[in-house]
Design a protein around this nucleic acid. Structure first.
Lengths: 348, 348
DNA sequence: ATGAAAGCGCTAACAC
DNA sequence: GTGTTAGCGCTTTCAT
């Protein structure tokens, strides 16, 4: 990019050969003899040659790069997804470019538009929880840019997806609380825009129903801006209004940790007379006192699978054009102190 | 990139004008009349035109993009830095491409090489704690690619840097422990490759010296792979070997949280007979029991300043060629429960 | 095995 | 104001 950068032509002139030969030699094409290949490579190294990404990809129409659109990368679960993506991509010699939307719809649109400009071969998309419109995604389909949804799902869009089983994860969490003897279980939700959140809500209701517990809509609180503090405030309000509530299922560990703080502040004994379960297995969940039971999600695996799916589609668009697999990964309930009312039920 | 993507030529043919006119109209060049401009834009929108990033930047030699090389994005401090970077970059109409090295030297070299290929106008670099060689950085300088170090510093490289005052941060933390009456203060270190770590060690020694406490080399433990568990194990070993140790200064909050766990396991009362201070103000520090005193770093501000510095250099290389400013940001000691032996000293 | 030449999609210099 | 032309740096025919 910068002035004076060494280019193919410079190497070619130095060796009195053509740029085509240099290009071929550097890319180990078989037409070039071993001797010439080594000579070219030596000179390239000596001159500190760096191939121009823009030029080579403009010409070859291939980037060997995937773009990742993700709201935030701020906790263990997200980090493990990124890890999985990076591992799988690196194994396939793909570069990874990450773009963080910070849960802004506008930034998401911008990120996707930017990635649509030919800088990557395909996209891994985790939509923000503010994403209500989908035209930017449909645009990708019209432009034939391969993409795979991961972690978050937009049901009405027909595309490959890798998500966790939010319904069962929530169901098992709430069932566990019921089996531990809790009956009046409240649920701290996010803004419910996200499809996964809706499934967790259904899982919560379904578990109650299975055990003949009448659901109480007032026990479900929507918390648009998730944080520990918001979780604490919401729980304090809930418990003051409905003192009979004896457990909280939080849609994230942050809310659940807030619930633990609130319950302790109000003199509830955890887990003796108050149970809490979270979702995602953040680092805080194993550090908070009492340690937080939570539903862990296989982030690394999810990142790997989504990336593998995407690369398959990039490498062979025809073959995979029709197939739009939806992979639903299993969650695992980690029982820690915050819900272990009965003896010997801890599994983590 | 994909077949059938609409290009300037398609718009030009449709309107029976030249591609140059289309290009100018879309970029709001004043030579083009308002009428034509709107007409072109309408058609472009109608045809779902997306400019080809590669082609335009190959031609104009400008990308309006910066690359970020960072070891991990796995906790609040890193996230706040990324936030600051994104905010400042967006304000200046720059795209941000993030590449995570996972503290691998090889991945760092690869990332920087990839970014050197003309995809970005400049780089923001936070070196990994495994980075012992610097030829890949020197290469950037030779290629005239602007870059700014942030958070982590390689002293021998003459480049713009934005870092926190590790020395004073550590000094104040240890001084605080001393003022709280702790005398036998151990220090949990990382692998000491990083310059910031070395400064924190010096700050630790310096505080001891100021208060006439003879330093004991055995009280400093190197922990290459930082985690809560490693911090706990190291502290347990330390306390078994040197039971007179009455406080720990951890180079990160993870190690400090491990130290809290270890001290509790061994029956030490925190903060009555054992003090702990960490560094960075991770989310876990406010959640752990007792809450962890820590040295907070202005991540958002750091990201902003580093980005501003980089963009200045990109926009006007000549003007800033000679200047290599080193910005050292202040840290803040957050006194929480883990070190508050004296009454009323909590400030957070 | 190597070179000449075309061209990826776009923008800038120069015409008019 | 708009068109023509050249060319960014590279890869890929098509020659030889």
């Amino acid at each position: 990019m910068k002035k004076g950068r060494v280019k193919l032509k410079d190497i070619a002139e130095k060796l009195n050969i053509s740029t085509a030969t240099v290009s071929r030699a550097l890319r180990n094409r078989i037409e070039i003899g071993a001797e010439m290949r080594e000579k070219v490579k030596a000179v390239a190294k000596e001159m500190h040659y760096q191939p121009n990404f823009m030029a080579s990809h403009l010409r070859s129409q291939r980037n060997f790069a995937i773009g990742v659109v993700i709201p935030k990368v701020n906790h263990q679960y997200m980090a493990s997804m990124i890890n999985g993506i990076l591992e799988e991509a690196t194994d396939n010699n793909f570069q990874v470019i990450i773009n963080v939307t910070e849960h802004s719809y506008e930034k998401e649109v911008k990120a996707i538009e930017m990635f649509s400009s030919g800088i990557v071969d395909g996209l891994l998309i985790c939509v923000s929880n503010q994403t209500k419109y989908i035209s930017h995604i449909e645009q990708l389909q019209q432009n034939n840019i391969p993409f795979v949804f991961f972690d978050k799902d937009i049901p009405k869009i027909d595309a490959p997806k890798v998500v966790v089983d939010d319904f069962t994860g929530a169901f098992v969490a709430v069932e566990h609380l019921i089996q531990q003897g809790f009956r009046n279980i409240a649920h701290l939700q996010d803004n419910l825009v996200n499809h996964g959140s809706q499934k967790r809500l259904k899982g919560y209701y379904s578990a109650l129903k299975k055990y003949g517990i009448v659901k109480n809509e007032n026990f479900v609180m929507q918390i648009p801006n998730i944080s520990i503090g918001e979780g604490r405030i919401a729980t304090e309000n809930l418990l003051r209004t409905y003192p009979n509530i004896d457990a909280i299922f939080g849609i994230t560990d942050e809310l659940a940790v807030g619930a633990i703080q609130a319950a302790k502040n109000l003199g509830r004994k955890i887990p003796e007379d108050f149970g809490v379960v979270g979702f995602s297995n953040w680092q805080i969940s194993s550090v908070v006192n009492p340690t937080l039971s939570t539903v862990s999600q296989p982030g690394n695996e999810m990142g790997k699978i989504a990336t593998k799916l995407l690369i398959q589609r990039i490498e062979d668009p025809e073959k995979y054009y029709e197939k739009k697999p939806i992979k639903i990964l299993k969650t695992q309930l980690l029982v820690r102190e915050s819900s272990s009312r009965l003896k010997n039920c801890l599994n983590y």
